[in-house]
Every structure is written in structure tokens, then in C-alpha cells.
Design a protein around this nucleic acid. Structure first.
Length: 861
RNA sequence: GCCGGUGUGGUGGAACAGGCAGACGCGCCGGACUCAAAAUCCGGUUGGGGCAACCCAGUGAGAGUUCGAUUCUCUCCACCGGCACCA
């Protein structure tokens, strides 16, 4: 046993061997069932971090496991390589973003290979390569043709520090997701993708995402934010204008006592005389400080009752949601209530609680015991649905001394012919009424807004349009794609895109009239790149027929899509994952794929935590994967990151835990090398049931444990990918092998069987070690091409079980019993147990419950 | 505020689908080996009580359903995450 476990010898050897054998090449055997396993591709920031190691270790186990189960597996990797850090590096260090990016890619690729990840590099995707981004441009032009891409001037989120526009999804707490600067609103001409066209479909299909974490589905639903309501037209008194408002509470229309316009609303400018005052309000637009308003001096007519109500401009009304104008019902909306209080506007109650008495009581019942309020409920329900009307209760709801708005639904009062209706019915009835009279209509609104993709940045996909002095916006013809990002630019960091400096890029002849034109200098949001990269992987990197395969249906895309298992961080719950669902539908409607939903199963892995915080450079609590691999090897690094926690949970880093993982692998290594000559001599013979007769009890036990482990590891991987418990089971088996003393050739055979099964089972987790030990036993290498082991239910079964005896649910005894006793026999055994007899004593046995193979519970009264 | 998640030893985490709570790992304690240490190996390790066989308590708190609850139901508490002027 001279040979010690030294990953530095083992790991490079096998990495080289696999590469030479081209072992990770994607199978083209389309008769096999396919499995597309994908991990979110990294941004090439320089070096991989522990989060990557964890993410890719999870994916690699799945990919290797599925392959051993006989699937044809697609397991690719690539680089999300456009983005701001490259440009910042250019400004700071004077390196061209391209050089910086490709150097990082090459370093990180070597790191991934050192981890022994089973990627097919013939499908590598690099988004900053013209071969890739030309398709961004092609899709964009198709979307332009279909009206799914458009240009409009709008208020946008502007990060002053990054000097660029941000998507709503990139604004977190009014701050830039990248640099934390406070985002301001700025009016700009921008390109948008019409994701709202798919709002309803994206929402409805959320319910089909059975393989996604509930949490992510809920986040997507909330983000899309569907609400039903009505659009109602209010005439402006004395001015030939209409104000369209959106409300989800048409049942409160009679309670509207004023109107609020968003500051950018067209009519705000038209109706307000004092422009300086309007400016003040506009300055506070989009800020969450105080709510301020400005009376326009004009009135609107409530179409329901003809009443004249004042029109205000208010900073809190969003232009982007609904119509940019709201009706205010202070009695039934807390925000309106506060606004009305501040500006002395009337409050009119038009909804009362369905059961005023309850409201009164529960209002005063604060601090009551749960029993107390249950009683109130009970009394009310026995009273039926016509409780005595408390006149004072109604009066309370009408006074102007309300403490807060009553926001619940209820029964309409003071609402003309609709009085007495319940809110739900009244909504329908009022919508019907306004539709009949042409005063408005029922509508559905979404929080989801179109995706602004223009970025005033260099390192991204050029948006393929030109601006012609005569023809206006002209898309670049397909034959002229790709529009190549020029390299001859300067990085000053002085704001504005460096593309403005590139004359060769900027000046162009109009494709339509040949006249003078200027190229679009904005580039695309990098989230465009990642919205379809999973489809690009389906076709080999250098496939010459790529053009026909990405513009129409291809066998490759039809075979591989959708992704069967997607793995990545939860931080993309609404950004990348929603955009990808949108893009997949666009490509479907362009006839490129028949797939609507890109990711069948999604696993969102937890963060890597150390000392109570997420590992990050700024916190100074990072563990460098290079160091870890150098010290313990990749197998140990992979094993620990899979063992310390189930994949979806946060992983608490522990240096000691890593050592534990290394110790475990060393023990397995020592079992093989410590018994190598005998294990080799005995050879790999099948160990079936016939061979089992006449072997030692210890041998039988080890065979049993081996079969049990195969079963457990298989179950744990199949069900929820609980690798931590799978590894624990393997540790148990190794512990049992360690204490197993082989006393003859029969036992050697058994040990060899156990070892080989363990190596097959552990190979997806620690492929180098498995491969090394597998081949040193004299087996052919490439364990990945072996079949996953199967267990024999009969050999896995225990011969005896430990019967637990309970009395009144409390554990009172245990006894070994043979398998397969009848309930009656078990009952008898338990009742005859002297200790149990004593405990029961003179008690009266009321009932005996037998749970097969587990326990018996004696109920004594 | 709304939505979602989590809560188990000293610690990371186990416990099929209501049936022995604490698998496996880490740490700690004891032992072997060693002049000694490290490494390795063996044993122990929820708390309290008892010489002991055993007994009592115990999965954030409180109730409920059940022969039996970490698991199901309700209320509450704490922490984490997401959204947040969306009319």
C-alpha cells in the first residue's frame, strides 16, 4: 500500500485521456432518448468562483449520470461575453475589451477543464463573436418586420454612473443592479422588444412549469402582474378633451372625488397654466419620497353621476402603468385617502362591509383571544345573511372622521341603481353599463412593460439599423449582416458610446436610397445574447449549414429542445428566465422551433456562504477554486460542494468539511490499493444469486449493503437531485468495506464487487478517482461509457428487521424478528415480550396497531 | 405592506408517503501508534437523572387532528429572499 491518493497525479492524466478520446463529444445517435443538461453560462470576468464550481458540479453529475443511464446527452458550455466589465477594464487598463474578454475565456476554460467537467467544446458559444451576434441582429430584424421591435421616445431608467439605460428588471430599489448608483428618469429614443405581446401567454404558461421551483414561478407571475379592471372616460369640463383612467375597482366609481394625472401625461401640460409649478411636480416624479399634487384649475365629469371633480397632477401616478391617469377614491384607497387629507378633498363612502356588524365587532375586538373571535364568527353565521343593520355602523362609514380607507370589497351604497350590489357583481354591471354608453370598457392590465434593449455602450451587439436623412429608420438588409463591432475605437470613460468616434462605423450609405445615413450607435442589452444561446448549442459550432438551421426548423433544434434540466442561480428568476421564455416564443412564431417553453426543469442552486455572508470579493471571504484544486484536487472540491448541502439550499463553506471529503476519497483509494493484488487476482466475475450460496454472513451483509447503496444513490439522484444523501450512502458503504475482513477468495470476490459498484456510483461525482481506481483493477477505462449499476431487490432486502414496540405511542422495546411475519404473529411476539408485559401490567389493552416491517403500537387504557 | 421560503444537537445537515428523531460529515472527548507532535486507526458524543439495566425531556412557541406528529391543520414568533406608490 505504497501508493497514496495524490489527485495531482491522477487528475491531469485522465483529463488528458478524455480529451484525446473525445469522450465528451455529443452523441449523434438520434435513436437514443435525448437529455439536454444545461448550466447557466458564465460571464468571463477573469476567474471562476466557488459559485461556478458548485453550479457546474451539479450539472456535471446530472450529465454523467444521464449518460450512464443510456441517454444521448447534450452538455455544452459557453461565454456570456459581452458586457460592461470588459469596457471598464479597457478604460482602466487600456486593454481592448476583446483582448481582455478572450484572455479571460481562455483562462476560465482551462479552469473548467481542470474540474473534469464533461463539456462538448465543439458546441462552445461565445456571444461576443460575430458568428454569434449576427443572429441577434437577424432576430432583431425579423422582430422589426413583425412589429415586435419598435422605437419610441420614453422615460427610461438611466444610470448616471454607467451612463446607460437600464431595463426595469435591472433596477433594484431605485438603484443600478451593477453599480448601486441611484437611477434617474430620462427621456430618450429607445428600441423596445414587445414582450407585452406575449404577456398573457407567458402568464398562462406559468402554470405548466411543473419542473420549476414554485418560488420562481410566483416571481414571474407577480412580475407580469395581471389585473382586470376598467378603462373609463372622464370628460374635461369646458375643454374638448377626454381623460381615460384605469381602475381595478369600477365598483367604487361613484366615490371618485378627484382625478390625478401623471406628470408626463399629455394633458398635464395642456391643462396646467403655471409651467413652473408643473416642473416642481415633475421633479418629484418617480421618487418615493412624499406624495405631492397640483390642482390644474380644471374639472372632469364623473360619467356615472355627472358630478364635477377637480383634476390634479400628482407625482406618484405612473405614466407607464394603465393610462397614466387615475380616478381617486379616498374612501376606499389608502393612498388617495392620504392625498385627500393633505389637499382637503372630499371623501365619499360608496362601499360598506358586507356585514357591517362584523366589521364593527372585529374592529373593536383587537387583542381578543382567538376563542373570542371564533365566537363572534359563530354568532354571525347563526344569524344568517341578514344581520340586524346597525345604523350607527353605516353612519360611521360615511363620516369624514374615518381613520383610514376601507379597501376591502363589500356592498355598494350611494351608487345610483347599483346600490345594494356586491362589489364583484357591481364591477361586471358597471363595466357593462359604461360599455353600453360608450364611456369606457373592461380591460386587462399588466405590470410587465416592453423590454428596452438600447444600451449606450460599446461592448455589445450593434443594433442593425441605419438612420437615413431621407428614408428615416432603415433596417440593415440580411445580406449585410453581421454589422461588425469596429475595433478602432477609443475608451476614454468620458461618457457616451465610443462608437460615436468611429467614422468607419458611423457613416454609411442608406441601403434603400444610397444616400447619406448614420448607423445606430446603441448596442443591445446583453440579456438578448442569453435569451437564445441554449438553442445555438443544439448545432455544432462550426456547422457550415448554420444559416439554414437557425432560420427555419432544423432536425437538431427539434431533437434537442427544450432543455431538460437547467441549473443556475435564482437571481435570474425574472430577468434571463423571462426573456428566454419570450424569445423562445418569438422564435417559435418565426417558424424556427416548435418549442414554446425552453426549460422543462429548473434547478436554482443556493449561494455559497462563508462566515455568514455570500462569498464575494468585497466581503473578503472568498475561497479561490484554483487554491482548492491545487491543494485537494477537483474531485474533492466537487464532492464537498455536492455533499455539504442539497443543491437548492445555501451551502455553508467549511474548510474542515473539505478535508473530510478528501479523507473519504483517500479511504476509498486505500481500500483498493490496500487489497490490490487480491482484488486483481479474483477478477471481475458476476456475483449473482447462485454465487451467493455458501458465503459468509459478513460477505452476504456486504453484498446486501452494496445493493442497498445502488438503490439509495439512484433514488436520491432521480428524486430531486439530493446528492448530499447519495454521497452519505456511499460513505456508509465505504465504511462497511473498510471493516470488512476478507478471509478467502470468496470474500475477495465480494469485496471486488462492492468496490466496483461503488466506483460506478461515485463516478459522476468524482470522475478522476473513479476512473483511476476502475482501471487499476484491470478494467477498460472510460467509466462514463459503462452502464449505471442496477440493484437486486431480493439481495438488498434485510433478512431480519428490528421490530419497534410502542405502548401508547412511546418507544418501549425493540426486538429482532424474521421478515414476513403476519400481523397476528407480530402482535403475539410483542405482547409476550416480558418487558412489555411488565409495562402494560394490569392495563386494559384496547387496540394493537401493526405497521408492516416497522413497529407495533399497543394502546392501553 | 404584499408574496414566498426557512426554523432539528456544539456545527453542516438526515429522517420513503404520519411510524425508532439526529443517518453521513465536521468539531469535541477518550484510547492505540509515537520520545513527542502531525497524519492514521479504534471507541464515544442531544440534554438532564442514575453505578447500571433504564427513566424523563426534546425538532422556534402555543393549540388541534391521530393509537402515534420533525412530517398534516390553525395561531403566533424569529430569520432570509423577492416585489413594492401598479390605481
Amino acid at each position: 500500500m505504497e501508493e497514496r491518493y495524490d489527485p495531482k497525479k491522477v487528475e491531469p492524466k485522465w483529463q488528458k485521456y478524455w480529451a484525446e478520446k473525445n469522450l465528451f463529444k455529443t452523441s449523434t445517435d438520434e435513436s437514443l432518448k435525448k437529455f439536454y443538461c444545461l448550466e447557466m453560462f458564465p460571464y468571463p470576468s477573469g476567474k471562476i468562483h466557488m459559485g461556478h464550481v458548485r453550479n457546474y458540479a451539479i450539472g456535471d453529475v446530472i450529465a454523467r449520470y444521464k449518460r450512464m443511464r443510456g441517454f444521448s446527452v447534450l452538455h455544452p458550455m459557453g461565454w456570456d461575453s459581452f458586457g460592461l466589465p470588459a469596457e471598464n477594464a479597457a478604460i482602466k487598463h487600456g486593454v481592448h475589451p476583446s483582448k481582455w474578454t478572450y484572455e479571460n475565456i481562455s483562462y476560465m476554460k482551462a479552469q473548467l477543464n481542470k474540474l473534469g467537467l464533461s463539456y462538448d467544446w465543439d458546441r462552445e458559444v461565445t456571444t461576443c463573436s460575430p458568428d454569434y451576434y449576427r443572429w441577434n441582429q437577424w432576430f432583431f430584424i425579423k422582430m422589426l418586420e413583425k412589429g415586435l421591435a419598435y422605437r419610441k421616445s420614453s422615460y427610461v431608467n438611466w444610470c448616471p454612473s454607467c451612463a446607460t439605460v437600464l431595463a426595469n428588471e435591472q433596477v433594484i430599489d431605485s438603484k443600478c443592479w451593477r453599480c448601486d448608483s441611484v437611477v434617474v428618469q430620462k427621456q430618450l429614443d429607445q428600441w423596445f422588444l414587445r414582450i407585452t405581446h406575449y404577456a398573457e401567454e407567458l402568464l398562462a404558461a406559468c402554470d405548466e412549469l411543473k419542473g420549476w421551483p414554485e418560488k420562481v414561478v410566483v416571481m414571474q407571475k407577480n412580475w407580469i402582474g395581471k389585473s382586470r379592471g376598467a378603462e373609463v372616460v372622464f370628460r374635461v369640463d369646458g375643454v374638448d378633451e377626454d381623460i381615460r383612467i384605469f381602475t381595478t375597482r369600477p365598483d367604487t366609481l361613484f366615490g371618485a372625488t378627484f382625478i390625478c394625472l401623471s406628470p408626463p401625461h399629455r394633458l398635464a401640460k395642456r391643462l396646467v397654466e403655471d409651467k413652473a409649478e408643473l416642473e416642481k411636480i415633475t421633479a418629484h416624479y418617480g421618487k418615493i419620497d412624499e406624495k405631492i399634487g397640483l390642482f390644474t384649475g380644471h374639472y372632469a365629469i364623473n360619467p356615472m353621476n355627472g358630478e364635477k371633480i377637480p383634476i390634479y397632477v400628482a407625482n406618484f401616478v405612473l405614466m407607464e402603468y394603465g393610462t397614466g391617469a387615475i380616478m381617486s377614491v379616498p374612501a376606499h384607497d389608502q393612498r388617495d385617502f392620504e392625498f385627500a387629507g393633505k389637499y382637503g378633498l372630499p371623501i365619499r363612502t360608496v362601499i360598506k362591509p358586507e356585514n357591517s356588524a362584523i366589521a364593527q365587532k372585529s374592529g373593536s375586538a383587537e387583542g381578543d383571544t382567538p376563542e373570542g373571535s371564533a365566537e363572534v364568527q359563530k354568532i354571525n353565521s347563526t344569524e344568517g345573511n341578514t344581520p340586524p343593520q346597525s345604523t350607527s355602523a353605516v353612519a360611521d362609514f360615511r363620516t369624514s372622521e374615518l381613520q383610514s380607507a376601507f379597501e376591502d370589497e363589500g356592498v355598494l351604497i350611494d351608487s345610483g341603481s347599483f346600490s345594494g350590489m356586491k362589489s364583484a357583481d357591481a364591477k361586471e354591471a358597471i363595466i357593462g353599463y359604461i360599455e353600453d354608453k360608450g364611456l369606457g370598457r373592461g380591460v386587462v392590465n399588466y405590470k410587465l412593460r416592453d423590454w428596452g434593449i438600447s444600451r449606450q455602450r460599446y461592448w455589445g451587439t450593434p443594433i442593425p439599423v441605419v438612420y437615413c436623412e431621407r428614408c428615416g429608420i432603415v433596417p440593415v438588409p440580411e445580406k449585410d449582416l453581421p454589422v461588425i463591432l469596429p475595433e478602432d475605437v477609443k475608451f476614454t470613460g468620458k461618457g457616451g458610446s465610443p462608437l460615436h468616434e468611429s467614422a468607419t462605423f458611423l457613416d454609411v450609405a442608406c441601403p434603400t436610397c444610397g444616400g447619406k445615413a448614420r448607423r445606430e450607435t446603441d448596442t443591445m442589452d446583453t440579456f438578448v445574447d442569453s435569451s437564445w444561446y441554449f438553442m445555438r448549442y443544439c448545432i455544432e459550432k462550426n456547422d457550415p449549414a448554420i444559416g439554414s438551421k437557425l432560420t427555419a426548423k432544423s432536425a437538431e433544434l427539434e431533437y434537442w429542445m427544450p432543455v431538460d434540466q437547467y441549473i443556475g442561480g435564482v437571481e435570474h428568476a425574472v430577468l434571463h428566465l423571462l426573456y428566454s421564455r419570450f424569445f423562445t416564443r418569438v422564435l417559435r412564431d418565426l417558424g424556427i422551433t416548435s418549442c414554446s417553453e425552453p426549460f422543462t426543469n429548473l434547478l436554482t442552486q443556493g449561494m455559497v456562504i462563508k462566515d455568514g455572508a455570500k462569498m464575494s470579493k468585497s466581503k473578503g471571504n472568498v475561497v479561490d477554486p484554483d487554491y482548492l484544486i491545487d491543494r485537494y484536487g477537483s474531485d474533492t472540491s466537487r464532492l464537498f460542494s455536492l455533499f455539504a448541502a442539497p443543491p437548492e439550499r445555501d451551502l455553508d463553506w467549511s474548510d474542515k468539511g473539505v478535508e473530510g471529503a478528501f479523507r473519504f476519497l483517500s479511504r476509498l483509494w486505500n481500500i483498493v490499493y490496500g487489497n490490490l493484488s487480491r482484488l486483481k487476482e479474483t477478477g471481475a466475475q458476476p456475483l449473482d444469486k447462485q454465487a451467493m450460496s455458501g458465503i459468509s454472513a459478513a460477505g452476504k451483509a456486504l453484498v446486501r449493503k452494496t445493493h442497498q447503496t445502488i438503490k439509495k444513490v439512484t433514488y436520491d439522484i432521480e428524486k430531486e437531485y439530493h446528492f448530499n444523501t447519495a454521497i452519505a450512502a456511499l460513505m456508509e458503504l465505504v465504511n462497511e468495506m473498510t471493516s470488512f475482513e476478507a478471509k478467502g477468495p470468496e470474500d475477495d470476490r465480494i469485496l471486488r464487487f462492492a468496490v466496483e459498484q461503488a466506483l460506478l456510483l461515485i463516478s459522476p461525482f468524482t470522475p478522476h478517482l473513479a476512473e483511476e481506481l476502475w482501471s487499476c483493477l484491470g478494467n477498460d477505462p472510460c467509466i462514463l461509457e459503462r452502464r449505471w449499476p442496477e440493484w437486486d431487490e431480493e439481495l438488498a432486502r434485510e433478512e431480519e428487521i428490528e421490530l419497534v414496540i410502542q405502548v401508547n405511542g412511546k418507544l418501549r422495546g425493540k426486538t429482532m424478528v424474521p421478515l414476513g411475519l403476519s400481523d397476528e404473529e407480530i402482535k403475539k411476539l410483542a405482547l409476550e415480550d416480558p418487558k412489555i408485559k411488565e409495562i402494560i401490567g394490569a392495563g386494559n389493552i384496547r387496540k394493537v396497531i401493526v405497521v408492516k416491517g416497522r413497529l407495533v403500537n399497543i394502546v392501553v387504557g
